[in-house]
Design a protein around this nucleic acid. Structure first.
Lengths: 140, 140
DNA sequence: CTATCTGCAAATAGTTTGCGTACTC
DNA sequence: GAGTACGCAAACTATTTGCAGATAG
């Protein structure tokens, strides 16, 4: 998605386009599983004096606008990603903390079966599933 | 699981059996999706003057011992349940916040497919999946 | 009797909010 | 120029930790 589309999405919801918002969107697309804090820190280098509360406020705006979603991957901070990214489900290793993804087709098949069983419509991007990654489950 | 088994599990890991620990275990099995705070509040009625930090410390002990696990169901506090409960995956509604469960067989089929695809061993009890419950997805 | 456990209070981590100024449109 | 957005500092929520007294084994 081009930056012009980001701007259009913001404007169509009555929000302004600011350097901070574009910078945050770039970070969310550049960093692998960024938390609010890691976006803030990464920004410290590129865009001096951006405030942490601005990161939080803008992540909320960007989610409202539909450009970004978040998932709760571990106990602490939620992680963010572009809403346009393929609908993967996050896999979080309870031992080493590494985060990988289930293939979109597997996620889709699961979502479909749950919808058939229970009527619940899954949003895969928001979801985190815990367990043990191949490395850690063999060393057990 | 009988209380005697709880006691055995605690003792076999070198922990003591205290009224607080048994009370917390009873609450975890009695309340639907308890957070540390809701266990503490529910306890206030039954077992006066139990401290919140004791709840946190003991939930950690009970997880170490393997009697209890937790899942991250929404943005805020994790919820706990007995490890012996069937391995359901939690479904959390992004609109109304209601929590339901996918049937154990569906969870198992998904876990198996993920294991085949990626080698990742899922622990369903820890996992939360977000989306919209039947009520909320029809009203959209 | 001794080491673990508990309650209390203070510390910490993540996030939110109030307020005055700066910048977008 | 009007009103949103920003930075700063303080407030808030969930959780953790230090310490002195209480209790299980």
């Amino acid at each position: 998605m081009a930056e012009s589309e980001w701007e259009a999405a913001l404007r169509s919801h009555g929000h302004r386009v600011t350097p901070q918002r574009l910078a945050i969107l770039r970070m969310v697309s550049a960093i692998r599983h960024p938390t609010a804090e890691s976006i803030y820190e990464a920004m410290g280098e590129a865009e001096p004096s951006l405030n942490l509360s601005t990161v939080y406020r803008n992540l909320a705006v960007l989610q409202e606008v539909g450009l970004v979603t978040h998932a709760h991957i571990d106990a602490k901070a939620p992680v963010y990603h572009l809403a346009a990214e393929p609908n993967h489900i996050h896999l979080s290793c309870l031992t080493c903390g590494e985060v990988t993804s289930v293939q979109p087709e597997t996620a889709a098949a699961f979502a479909e079966r749950v919808a058939t069983d229970t009527g619940f419509q899954i949003r895969p991007g928001h979801s985190a599933v815990y367990g043990f990654c191949p490395k850690c489950s063999t060393n057990t």
